[in-house]
Design a protein around this nucleic acid. Structure first.
Lengths: 245, 245
DNA sequence: GATGACCTTATGTCAGAACAAAGTATTGAC
DNA sequence: GTCAATACTTTGTTCTGACATAAGGTCATC
């Protein structure tokens, strides 16, 4: 039985109540107050204790179920799962992932030009073939070691500078340009590195690399970015959390 | 403006109303009745038309937003995104994925034995080191060509037979054994194939392969399966959909 | 003609209530 | 003592109702 944890719910704060509660419970889990396998108090009780309604509590719990931290079972209750802390792949750029985990990412812009859209990229970005695009090729390193080789395509209306892409990440530039990224489709595969890629990444020739292809959509459902990335398999992998019904 | 699509909502059916509505809208999108970029009717209107309440409609729409098919924007409405139909990676086995997509998967059980748990696997399954485990090594093919080499560990209480694993998938066996899989953490990487792996997969030696490590948890939050899989990169890749706030 | 205030529209958040369904525990009969 | 029916607990689904907030357009004013 879980102890009566006490969180502060600030009703005057603009952050939604369900989000405050979700964050508080998440903190209790990662902080160890709620060990793996322990049962959460039932929804009615939680609602009563914090002066919230059941739908609000349910939404907070749902948030954590989606994150893979809790498991619900009708007639039984809600339990804490292994706190594997695998921060599930979110809609963030590699740069942000690295910066948040304490690494100090650096970026070298290899090229930045404007070209007519190739057929395949035009299809991904839902633009007519030949439309002008911005193409940027970058080498991302962390801890002094190369990590990824990234090629990104943006519609021609964007005009990033080399400084934008060196100092911060591509996604930070897009946000500053008023773009709100909402959804992305991505495809992860593997293949052998080509000679130039291996050289840039500091890997032996013909070594295995992870490939990632991503198309990102903004909040009106329009594609705004298409990228083909290559990661050093020896230094990087993807973590995801899958949630069943 | 979207045409007045008409779905049947069956109130006597045991399937939840929000799910029926979600499936209907999804069908309209993939079927072409709702092209990419078109706006959905607003929630109040939808609720009125089908005799549902707004929360129910919202839940249905949310379902599709999570799937990456729709995008919501406050004050504006809900729009259909590119129907990329990248069925996001779900909590299913490779076998089910293949079977559903019309392929005819076959499985060869290479070995099936009981061994004391190695340190790393014991940690993943949250069991004491040395505890008896079931280990199964399988080669999955589709269309006559090898596709994946799979090594899976189960707690000793399970006793699958070679037939179980040949005729159906591992997850189907687990479900039949009364296990309800709920969450899985997985890690995707790449590396070079070892000699034996390349031989089994029918790839040239030292070619690139995709690796996947998965720990699956049941509905009481306990780990019940740990697997290390190797996929032929030339024939397989992972698709995911990321949804931002 | 540009800019700000205001209104409309649509989604976002929250409350309170009721019944359904599934799992567990208890109780009762044999 | 065993087993089945029953009661209880807890999450699942759905409703009604209300107010908040953001985006976009309109209109009047400067």
């Amino acid at each position: 039985m879980a102890p009566a944890l006490m969180f502060d719910i600030d009703r005057s704060s603009p952050t939604p109540l369900y989000f405050q509660l979700a964050r508080a419970i998440e903190g209790a889990i990662t902080g160890g107050a709620l060990p793996a396998g322990s049962r959460l108090d039932n929804e009615l009780l939680l609602a009563q204790r914090y002066g919230l309604s059941r739908p609000t509590v349910r939404r907070a719990v749902q948030e954590l179920v989606d994150k893979g931290l809790l498991v619900r079972k009708r007639g039984v209750g809600t339990q804490v799962i292994q706190p594997h802390v695998s921060r599930s792949v979110e809609l963030t750029s590699l740069y942000e992932d690295l910066a948040r985990s304490g690494a100090s990412p650096t970026t070298a812009v290899l090229s930045l030009e404007r070209v007519p859209a190739p057929v395949d990229v035009a299809g991904e970005l839902d633009l007519p073939e030949g439309e002008e695009l911005v193409v940027v090729r970058r080498l991302r390193s962390s801890g002094g070691e190369p990590l990824a080789l990234m090629t990104n395509y943006l519609p021609g209306r964007f005009m990033p500078t080399v400084e934008d892409l060196t100092e911060r990440g591509l996604y930070q530039y897009l946000r500053a340009a008023g773009v709100h990224l909402r959804v992305a489709h991505q495809r992860i595969g593997a293949r052998m590195a080509r000679a130039e890629e291996a050289r840039l990444l500091g890997e032996p020739p013909r070594s295995a690399v992870l490939t990632m292809q991503r198309t990102a959509f903004d909040d009106v459902g329009q594609p705004v970015e298409f990228g083909r990335h290559i990661y050093r398999a020896s230094r990087y992998d993807f973590e995801t959390t899958l949630v069943g019904r």
